[in-house]
Each structure stands twice: as C-alpha cells, then as structure tokens.
Design a protein around this nucleic acid. Structure first.
Lengths: 194, 194, 194, 194
DNA sequence: CATGAATGAGGATTCATTCAT
DNA sequence: AATGAATGAATCCTCATTCAT
C-alpha cells in the first residue's frame, strides 16, 4: 500500500532531517520548525510522530545506537581468536564512523548530554554487555591486560573516539591501509598483555 | 580601594556562577538571568562585564584552560627524563580534575562545542605546542613510540579523559595510590616504545 | 439494522463523552481529540456528526435542556393548585439535579456562556413560557406576590440553583426529607403572598 | 518619582485591559498578546508582572474581590439594626455592580471557574466570615429566619446575583428607587422571620 | 558602575479541522 | 459512514539584550 510507505516515509524523513541539523548546529539551535521544513512536512506533523522534541532526540539516539551496534558487531562472533575479534570490531567501528559521519558525530555529541534520558540509556545498556564479555574472555585467556573490565572498556571507547576524530581531520589517511593498520596496532598494544 | 575589589568581585562571581550552572544544566538551559541571580548581581550587570552571553562562555573557557595549563605543567620542565615528565604531567592532570571537577567537566563539555569560537581556540592553541614538544623529545630519544605527534597527542588526551571520568564514577579509587599507579603504567605502556 | 443503531450509538457516545469532559475540565480545556478518545471513536468521526466543536456543545446544551424540561414538568399540569404545582416542579428539579449532577452542572456552567449561540437560546426559549404562565396564574389568583413576572422567574431560578449547589456540598441532606421540606418552605414563603 | 508611578501604571494597565477583555470574550478567548496590546505594553512585559496567564487571572480576581468587599461593607457596622445593616449591604452591592458592571461580571463569571485556584479562594474566604456573623446576629435576635447560616448565605448570594442580572437587562429600572425598594423588600421578606 | 524594568523576536506545543483512503 | 494522518494558525512563555535612572 502506498499510504503505509508514505507514512513511514515522513517519520523517517523527520528523523533524518533532525540528525542532519543537530549535527551541524546542535539541537538547541535547531528549532522544530526547521526540522519540519527540512523534512518537508508541516510543523504539526513532527509532533504527530514525536510527542516532544526530547522524544524525537531520544528516538534518534536509540535508533542510531542500535544500528551502530548491529553493524559494528557483525561477524565478530565468528572470528577465531581475541585479536581477530578485536580487530574486526575496531575496523567495523572506524569504517562505520567514516561512512556515516553524521551518525558518529551525533552519538559522540549526545552520549553525555542530559537530553538523553536515563530510560534511553538503559534501553541501550544491553550493548555494553557484549563488550564486557569480550574483554573478560580476553583477560581469561591471558591475551588482554589484567585491568578492571569497566576501566578497559572506558579507555578503549575513548581511544577509538580519538582515532576517529583524528581521521575526520586528516582525510588523507582515511583510505590509507598502512596508516589504519598502524593505528590499530597502537591500539592493540595498549590493551594486549605483553 | 574598595570599589575596585568589589568590581573584580562581581566579575568573578558571575564567572563562578556561570560555571556552576553551565556544568549542571548546560549552556542553553542556563539563562543569563539565572547566572545573575546565582551571582547576586543585577541582570544588567552581567552585560557590563560581558557583551554577550557567548562572550561570557568564551572568557570562562579561556580562563579555565589557562589555569589548567599553568597548574598541570608546573614543575614538568624540571624533571629529568621523559617518563618522569610524563608521569608528573599525568598526575598533575588527574589531581587537578579531581580537585576541581567543575572545571574539568566544563572543559570537557565545551572543548568541542560550537560555542567556543575559533578565536578562543586559537588563543589557547599555544598550549598544544608544549605537549607536542614533549612528545617530539620522547620520540627523538627513542622513549616514545614512533607515531605521528598529533595522533599521539590526540589519543593521549582522550585516554586521560577516560581515566578521569572513570575516577569520577569510582570515588573509592581516587585516593588509592596503587590504583592510580596501575592506571598510569597502563597509560605509559600504551605510548612507550618497548 | 445494526449499522443504523451503531451510528446512533456513536453520536450518543460522543455527546456523553463530551458532557463528562466539559463538566470536569470546561469546554476550552477539552480537545475534540479527547472527546473522541473518551467516546472510543476516531477523531474525524466527531466531525461527521457535528460540523464544529461549537455545534457539538450547542447540540448538547439543547438536548440536555429539553430533557430537563420534559422531566421536571412532568405531572405539574395535573396538580390542583399553585402551591402543589410549584412544589412538584421544585422537587422534580432538585431530584433531577441530584440524579444527574453532570447534566445540572453542565447547564449551570453554560447557560450564560458565550458558546451557547443566540439561536440555541431561542430554540429553548419556549420553555420559559411555561414558567411565566405558571407565575402569572399564581399572581392572578393572589397566591403569588405581585412582582414582575420575569423578575420573579429570574430570582426563582437563581434560588433553586442555590439550593442545589448547597445540596451538592452537603450530601448528608440530600435524602433528608425534613430538610428538603424546610428548604422548599423557605422557597415558597419567598414567593407566596402573605 | 516618575518611574515608580509609571511602573505601577503598567501593572495596573495590564489588569484593567485584562478585565475588559475577559468580560467580553472570556479568558480562554483572550490571548495574552491581546491583553498586552490593549494595555499598550510589550508582550513580555505582561510576563514580567505575572508569571503566567493564570497568575494574572487570580490576581485580578483577588483584587476585584477585595475591592468589592471593602466598598460594599462600608458603613454597615454603624447601622443600628439588622434590617438596616442588610439593607445597606444590599444597596451597596447593587450599586457597586451597576457602577462597575465589568467587575461584577468578572466575579460572577469566574467565581466558580477552575482557573481560580484553591489558594486564591482561601485568600478570599475571610470575607465570608463577615456575612456569616451578620446572619448569626440576625438569627439570635430573632430577626432572621432560623435556617442554617451557610444555606442562607448561599441563597442570599444567588438572589442578589439574580437581581443584578435582571437590572442589567432592564436598564430602565436601575435608577428607579421605587423599583429597587420593591426588590429589596422582596429580598428582605424572603429571609426575615414573620 | 549598577540596576532591573521593558522589550519583542523566537520557539515548543496544541488543536480544530480537512481529506484521502 | 469511519478513519486517523496531516496541516498550520494560534498561543503561552522564555530570554538575551537594551536603556533610562
């Protein structure tokens, strides 16, 4: 049916428009009217799909995180050893960010924002389990350094953010496999047991 | 003269009030009227000292960064070797953050914010030279890994942010010297040449 | 036919839902969407039966008034003398209000409201004739005081509103026949010629 | 000082404008922007003096009620007997309403409105004591009928509303002392012991 | 310098009403 | 007849900034 796809279309268009504008201007500087205009829908339509601007932001955050998680963990389970798993995860993550800079910037900007409600954070928290499990496995096998799991997760996350931001500023390295390889090795050495 | 100190006093009070409120509620959710109230000055007084709200935030950012730099680099020059220099810098930084969480959170929140104008960033950029020089020295002496200076600076910065945020969430480790020592060693190993 | 009764059903459900909500929250604080929800019909359905929100309220007012008139005047013609007629009218009115507080409150609230159009008021005005005739009869027979008919009607109406509102606040008297009898006598004495 | 009077002026102008518009259109149909325009102040100025539209309404209600009470009870204490007291109160009230129809209509319209907060009602409740005391005195002296004080207060209030509304519709009687006298006697007989 | 009343543009949200299905 | 998505005008309120005192 046409109507069904059209409807989905509007909701989707609003979310996409919102992300585009939020990344560029921050959501405080993005009026809902601008989002509606960018999505080519009426102002009221936005509120038909999302009760408040905050709900829109949280929905966007959740959907982006979920998509991120699905994409970046794809195939990781099938890798044979820890290093290969970590490498795949690392490359998946970096590529995801380079392919969808808007999504990455959105998550990075808002993951610590007070606008992301506690409920939303909990909705997402399942993902963290995956990373913690992987770190625990690595520690058990003696492959990873023996530091607290949550600390390692934290440091790891920040380090990947660091790399990605660097690549955003240095586009010339984005497709340089030697460079990426070096960056990964730096990362790996920082967490692997010697 | 009393009036002189009083004036300085008001400017100072406004800056302190602003930081307190910005950290808790963010820049956009903090009306200038709230800052004035928190600082116990009249609404208009705020605009005597700062032409716009944005100027206030930039001033605050610059002063905080400068203070941060002065405090955290104190004594580093006098240390004999790279590891000692890096260690002192690391400890200074961590302690500074734990002593002035508001300042740290403020910098962390706003360092990538669009409110911090380009001009302000340039005003601060001199500091970066200090870190780059240190990294270059380390690389020359063969103490630090041979990866691009700016990349190492970036990763290093993010890693320290990571540690500090971790300590904020785990107050029980803040005065645990064994723990801090472990964290530093982890950090050091990630940048030192084997 | 089922469909016919169903339709009537919907119209009726909308009217009932509207009254319930209008009494509790007032006309302006009751969105048509809330009425539709309360009546379990779609938003657009409401506009099938009533062209505008205002038409809905006028219809409701007219139907309620008509029902009120029919019920409260029942049997009055058959009473032999003025006092008995007035007493029956009085009791009918009080009982009607106590049995259908929503209806009473609705009429009271909206009888002077600007939402009730002139047309609606005229549509209802025939009822007033009944009361005026009764008063005129009473005056002719020397039973009622000799004050202008419309003034007496007005004062009488307000006094009954007063009693009913009092009984709403003092439920303990609602079934106390001694009390009701006293209230009626007070009422009667205020209009009867001595 | 000019500024002082000017400021008072604006607050006052807003209240007056609000009353004017509320009486004509009801406050749901009166946007704050219209009030501001009518008062010749900026939109924001209204919110400088009243935090919300509701606060404005409640303030207006309180001030009007207070003024009503002061004016209508003036001199009543000095009258010698109950009938004279009641008569003065009655005439004061009727005259007040005829002189300031806007005020009367405003109070009548909103005294049962959900917009008048409980707090406001309590703020006003002291006035009721005055009337109750007067009724009690009358009952003790055997001048007034022996019906519950609060019931008599209620009926009395409604009856006066009735008279006033009647006079609004029949301007020809407003200055007819014979007519007014008759109306008062009707009132008095309804509450006086025979 | 200091004050705080005054401004008015801007923004989130509501809601009666329409209309394609 | 029934639906409910879509509309956009209307409204309350916020807030940075100005300015007379």
């Amino acid at each position: 049916m046409i109507s069904q796809s059209k409807l989905e279309n509007k909701r989707e268009r609003i979310l996409l428009a919102a992300r585009r504008l939020f990344v560029n201007q921050g959501f405080h500087s993005t009026p809902t009217s601008a989002i509606a205009r960018e999505a080519s829908v009426a102002n009221g339509t936005l509120f038909h799909y999302f009760n408040t601007k905050e709900e829109l932001i949280n929905t966007l955050y959740k959907e982006t995180k979920r998509s991120f998680f699905t994409i970046t963990t794809a195939g990781v389970e099938n890798e044979k050893n820890i290093k290969r798993k970590v490498r795949l995860l690392w490359y998946n993550t970096v590529k995801w960010a380079l392919n969808r800079p808007q999504d990455f910037l959105f998550i990075q900007q808002y993951s610590n924002s007070p606008f992301i409600s506690q409920l939303t954070q909990e909705d997402i928290s399942e993902h963290i389990g995956f990373y913690h499990d992987l770190i625990d496995q690595g520690k058990e096998k003696g492959t990873l350094k023996d530091i607290p799991t949550d600390l390692m997760y934290q440091l790891t996350t920040y380090q990947i953010y660091g790399i990605i931001n660097y690549l955003f500023q240095h586009k010339e390295f984005q497709n340089n496999s030697t460079y990426l390889s070096m960056a990964f090795e730096f990362y790996w050495e920082s967490i692997a047991k010697k």
